[in-house]
């Protein structure tokens, strides 16, 4: 008894040693900044002088700041790409799941934008969206469509960013769906066939429910990621676009914090964004819980 407890204590000591790095990292680089950020949001913090407590002042201002609303609207608008991407990716995955020749090549080709650097991709698409000589308008010209100057136009800058985001993320979502489709037992499809179910019914009653966990995962992670969109906007529209129509929340926070040094105000906005993400995620988990059922 005594020896086991001694062994256990040794094991425990080593275990704590082995997990020390991530735990310390978590405290220094997540916990301390988080508390710091929460406190900072209630002060007039400017990075230089002292931090004076000003209560809810920053939050009051945030909710009266038209640029905050605008950037929030832009951010949410650009999330329209998420459902588009999901539908396209699922279709692609279904196509690739047929086992036709060249599947592996297609998988690699569709995945290339995913691994490409977002800065380089943004530069490329900024050029592709050029009103006169860009690839996009050249392509549209084939069909006799005169494309706009995409990034200089308030009504087209967000769709332009959405198209690019769908293009870049498609391969990743497709891959997740493909893995999910491949894990569906073939007996399910055989049974459906015996029951005389057609392709649409099979898709609706078997495929879709079977990939639901992956769909949930994709929606949750895409919304968390989409809420923090920054790089494409910073590279493609360095000023936040015409009339600030492409600025995202993170872009606005970044400008306020590192351009104007309104650190307290920026922290308050970051917290609002964080809470927004948290609540949306929580709602999704609740909905998912309610609709999920056990498979026999």
């Amino acid at each position: 008894m005594k020896t086991t407890s001694k062994l256990y204590r040794t094991e425990q000591r080593y275990a704590y040693l082995f997990i020390a790095a991530p735990v310390i990292g978590f405290l220094i680089f997540a916990m301390v900044p988080l508390i710091y950020s929460i406190y900072g949001a209630f002060t007039n913090w400017d990075g230089l002088g002292s931090m004076t407590f000003i209560g809810l002042e920053n939050f009051k201002n945030v909710f009266q700041d038209e640029y905050f609303y605008k950037s929030m609207f832009n951010t949410i608008y650009m999330m329209l790409g998420i459902p588009i991407g999901i539908v396209l990716a699922l279709l692609l995955a279904l196509a690739l799941n047929r086992g036709i020749p060249g599947t592996n090549t297609f998988r690699v080709l569709y995945y290339i934008p995913v691994i490409s650097s977002i800065a380089a991709i943004s530069i490329l698409w900024q050029w592709a969206y050029n009103g006169d000589y860009g690839l996009v308008n050249q392509f549209l010209a084939i069909f006799g469509i005169e494309g706009p100057n995409w990034l200089q136009n308030t009504s087209t800058v967000k769709p332009a960013l959405i198209i690019m985001a769908v293009w870049k993320g498609l391969g990743y979502t497709m891959l997740l769906y493909l893995a999910a489709l491949q894990s569906v037992p073939t007996s399910f499809y055989e049974a459906a066939k015996l029951d005389g179910a057609n392709a649409v019914k099979t898709f609706w009653y078997i495929t879709l429910p079977m990939v639901k966990p992956v769909t949930f995962f994709i929606i949750v992670t895409n919304i968390i990621g989409g809420a923090q969109i920054f790089t494409e906007i910073n590279v493609m529209t360095p000023t936040g676009g015409p009339e600030y129509s492409s600025a995202s929340v993170v872009f606005y926070i970044w400008q306020k914090a590192f351009g104007n040094f309104q650190l307290g105000y920026a922290s308050a906005m970051a917290l609002v964004l964080g809470l927004f993400i948290f609540i949306i995620t929580l709602i999704q988990f609740k909905i998912n819980e309610k609709n999920s059922y056990e498979l026999d």
Binding site: F29, A30, V32, P33, L34, Y36, S37, G40, I224, A227, Q228, V249, V250, I253, W254, A257, L263, A266, S267, A270, L271, L273, G274, I277
Partner: peptide
């Protein structure tokens, strides 16, 4: 915790 919350501190 989203990175924007942590980046300023």
């Amino acid at each position: 915790i989203p990175y924007p919350v942590l980046m300023i501190p």
